[in-house]
Design a protein around this nucleic acid. Sequence first.
DNA 1: CTGGGCTCCTGTCAGC
DNA 2: TGCTGACAGGAGCCCA
Length: 286
Amino acid sequence: MPAMPELPEVEVTRQSIADPLAGAQIRAVRVGKPLRWPLGVAPQSLAGLRIGDARRRGKYIWLPLQRAAHDAGGLLLHLGMSGSLGFHAAVAGDALAARPGPHDHFDLLCDRGLLRLTDPRRFGAVVWSEGLAQEPAASLLARLGVEPFDPRFDGAWLHQGFKGRSVAVKQALLAGDIVVGAGNIYACEALFLAGIDPRLPAGSVSRPRCERLAAAVRDVLGRAVQAGGTTLRDFRDGHGIAGSYQMQVMVYGREGEPCHRCGTGKIRRIVQGQRATYFCSHCQKR
DNA sequence: CTGGGCTCCTGTCAGC
DNA sequence: TGCTGACAGGAGCCCA
């Protein structure tokens, strides 16, 4: 079942698995069908390693591993378009591990239970790396923009990042090389909150509007994390709990419906870079 | 360097 | 009921 996670869904997932996994010892690893990239290490060689505190960078989750209290690399996970992680405590986890479903492509069986990646489309990935500074982790993270809650991220940062770029501001936000985390839903939502037409060339967005947009990005992503993510179809965190940010969505997926703010305009749907964009042409100006 | 398009893969849903 | 095509929350990669 698709999950389609953006930063809030990844963060909520991370939070839900961090405590159960911290300090757990790996007993066995099972890989299913190929994901986006190969694991890069023999699965059984991870047995005996202890899991540290799960971290997040952009839409990646980093699981640090230790052997005898010494850093021993880790696993970089990405959920792609349809991935979700589930944690199943000891007894249930053992039973589940014995009979994986057709879309369960990575199992980390540890003494505390089972961490399972379910990913029908297999755009997700689990990649072994000696450390965040080592290949392949470093190359996957190298081009990522700043975190939205990093103090460096503000209107000036956006304005500088947009400078000289002719792509539409929606696509520049989505690209993730200026600021990470805003995927298709939250990029649309942030542009709505900031009152900016998604078709505007990024480089032509004024400094004051960049200030509003930066605030909107932080606001939308922060509130989405607080709400446990967006469950439009079936996103669940590591314990199977759905999010509720869909209750606050203003434009995404609302083509033809009246704008929640102005009431008069209808929400429009256009395509930018093969991705759908939703906006209110009355509230969002050029 | 930038921009644009393609690609990986499977499931679901609308329309005929 | 069954088939077909569009579409899906990502993002790396290749080429002009």
